[in-house]
Simulated assay, not measured.
Amino acid sequence: MSSTLFPRYDSLQKSFGTAHGPALTHRSAVARVPVPEIRPELCVAYSVVDDAKDKAKKLSDEAAKEFEKGIAAAKPKKQTIELYSGKYYAACTFGGMLACGLTHTAVTPLDLVKVRRQVDSSLYKSNIQGWGLIYRSEGLRGIMTGWSPTLFGYSAQGAFKYGWYEYFKKTYSDVVGPERAHRYKTSVYLAASASAEFLADIALCPFEAVKVRMQGSLKSPYKGTLDGIRQIMASEGTAGLYKGIYPLWARQIPYTMMKFASFETIVDMIYTRLPGNKNDYSKVVQTGVSFTGGYLAGILCAIVSHPADVMVSKLNAYRKPGEAFGTVISRIYGDIGFAGLWNGLGVRIIMIGTLTGLQWMIYDYFKIFMGFPTTGGAAPPEEKK
């Protein structure tokens, strides 16, 4: 009979014991009767069971190992993107597109009434009255007039603005060195944001021209964004899409410089006054700080850029074909005066404050999702000994 059919000696010891060993049954120990030695040839059944247990244990161990391998393979691999690499800037570009495109589109009703009041201050007595009149005459679709060029235009602008800002901030910091970059960080923020917005407005301008014309008229002259671009190019050429680029730069570059520099400064001040370091706080707290800093920065942005915003609205609506830029600016200022440059400031503060706060919150949440540190509140570089 094969040896595999017999139990091992240690198994017999555990199960029965021997006459000479200490393992006795309870009854045998009481009676002091020695247990006869177990004959292996009579234990074929025990041999089969014992062998099956060994094989089952081996199979169980192998199955456990395979299961662990399967779990490890099923887990998603953590993607790590090196900071300041091409992929990092591409991710920031996408985050900026989300932050600006979604938020500007969401506040289209506010923007619509603001633009119409800037074009004709006597049109509505208040924002509430404006929305009521538009809704009664055009319905909900009328309140959302201009949403499509807003979505396309500010998605493109946000992508350029945030992506290039991250690039220029790093580049300018490297040029001056880490210690000077920290000492003059506000100057770095201002230079980086101005450079980024200059490029972003080139992407925004054609869509802004369509948006303002759609919103500035009581009845939109275009069916949509593409129809507006087609009609403008047909009647005025490519120059018609960019005739508002100078006032757009005048509005957006100071706006963005204030937006980024003040945001970074405010966030830095918040973390400086909180106990501990920035990294000690949860991601929820960090995005809350981003929203607070963005909202406060947005109020400053609205004040700084509002006169130019009024000019952009007026210029796209009233500039005559071939009319010189200086001529139309003088004509508009002569019509509205200095006080007219501040028409609609209240609603713009609410709109821009909310916009900027939400943009920074979305952008920094996206950075957290990608595994990047949030914007602002960075520790100063260590001094060289």
Score class of each variant (00 low, 15 high):
K78P: 04
T292Y: 00
S217A: 14
F366G: 11
R117F: 01
H20I: 12
E41R: 05
W164I: 07
A379S: 14
A181H: 04
T105V: 06
E138H: 14
K259R: 12
G244W: 02
F338Q: 14
A191R: 03
M370V: 13
M214R: 02
Q359P: 13
W147P: 01
K69D: 13
L110V: 01
V119F: 12
F94R: 02
V212K: 01
S282I: 05
G376M: 04
G228V: 03
G132C: 03
D364S: 08
F263A: 06
P206R: 00
S28I: 07
G244E: 01
K384I: 14
Y365Q: 14
T287N: 10
I71L: 15
G276F: 03
W342F: 14
Q252K: 09
D309Q: 14
Q129F: 00
Y189Q: 08
T238S: 10
L241D: 02
I245G: 06
P76T: 07
I253G: 06
V175S: 03
A52D: 03
V44P: 02
G322M: 03
L83V: 08
G340F: 02
F338V: 15
S155N: 06
V48N: 01
A192N: 00
Y255C: 13
G228L: 02
H306M: 02
M97N: 01
R183L: 10
T287Q: 07
V289L: 08
A209R: 05
K320Q: 12
N277M: 11
V312F: 05
I232Y: 00
Q359T: 11
S220G: 09
Y165T: 10
A91C: 15
D364R: 03
S47P: 02
D111A: 06
C301L: 04
D61T: 09
A159P: 00
T356Y: 04
F372M: 06
A31R: 11
F369T: 15
K169G: 01
K65A: 15
V107W: 12
Y333G: 06
Y318K: 11
G371K: 06
S313V: 10
L199I: 15
V107A: 09
P40F: 12
T80K: 13
P275Y: 00
R213M: 08
Y135G: 06
Q252A: 12
M269D: 10
P275W: 02
L248E: 05
L204F: 04
Y46M: 14
P321E: 05
W360V: 10
G21D: 15
